[in-house]
């Protein structure tokens, strides 16, 4: 009997903690499949951040360095300084990449660090219980904007790819989604390109994945995917923002 499909060697058998309908599990799987296919699993170092994605350390079959909130790009910079041929895999959420870590995000891109950042945009702070994120859309509710985000009181949402693609030093910036199979296939291609860039020493690559958070959105998994497709995509358009 031939094996048609099996778990990637990049993931171990530990149970992940992600909620039903959360796309984090899928995202980690895509990344680890890519790293296995590119033949670099054995020199990958995962750099965790703070948020739900921080718990990826349990399921990756790689070395891991844990970072403080927002600092993963800086930590990755330190790791790459000592081991330039290591492949670093950073996975960040909204708060990590765009709020507390904004300086590190922009500066790492500006310095042209040879790293790959996978950014899960799920419009909310998941692990801490559903507070507003930099990416929460106007009108959407969160625990720190319970009446719905009001631009005049709570500020405007931030578009990561649009911002980062402006930074000289960022080489490849794409926004993808994973709400159906065609989009998953495209997302995996983008992830592959982002890591190939790192392997080639080409420079800073950033892939934003429109993600779900059923628990804090108070939607079921299918409705969550619909939200990405019908609401988020309009505010955060998919596509390639930079490809140098």
């Amino acid at each position: 009997m031939s094996v048609v499909y099996e778990r990637t060697k990049g993931l171990n058998q530990n149970q992940s903690i992600y909620c039903p309908g959360c796309t984090h599990g899928l995202e980690h799987k895509l990344v680890m499949e890519v790293l296995e296919e590119l033949g670099v699993l054995d020199r990958t170092i995962g750099i965790t951040s703070v948020g739900c994605s921080g718990l990826m350390f349990r399921i990756l079959n790689t070395e891991v360095v844990t970072s403080l909130h927002g600092r993963a790009p800086a930590v990755a910079t330190g790791v790459k300084a000592v081991q330039p041929d290591a492949i670093v895999y950073i996975h960040q959420g909204d708060g990590d990449a765009l709020s507390i870590g904004m300086a590190e995000t922009i500066s790492a891109a500006s310095r042209g660090e040879n790293i790959t950042v996978i950014f899960a945009n799920n419009n909310i702070y998941g692990m801490t219980g559903g507070q507003m994120a930099a990416t929460t859309m106007v009108g959407d509710k969160a625990t720190t904007c319970p009446a719905g985000r009001d631009a005049s009181l709570d500020g405007n949402p931030m578009r990561a790819c649009e911002l980062i693609s402006q930074v000289e030093g960022a080489k490849y910036v794409e926004r993808v989604a994973v709400y159906d199979v065609p989009h998953i296939i495209k997302a995996k291609k983008a992830i592959k390109k982002a890591f190939q860039n790192q392997i080639d020493g080409h420079g800073y690559s950033f892939v934003e994945i429109l993600s779900t958070c059923p628990t804090n959105w108070h939607l079921d998994p299918l409705a969550s995917m619909d939200k990405v497709k019908n609401e988020m995509e309009a505010v955060y358009p998919l596509g390639v923002f930079k490809d140098e």
């Binding site: 708060g95 507390i100 801490t128 219980g129 507070q131 625990t143 720190t144 904007c145 319970p146 009446a147």
Partner: peptide
């Protein structure tokens, strides 16, 4: 800024 275990403070005060 959100941080466990005090998130109810900013959540309550946001309203």
């Amino acid at each position: 800024y959100p941080i466990t275990p005090q998130n109810e403070v900013p959540e309550y005060l946001s309203a």
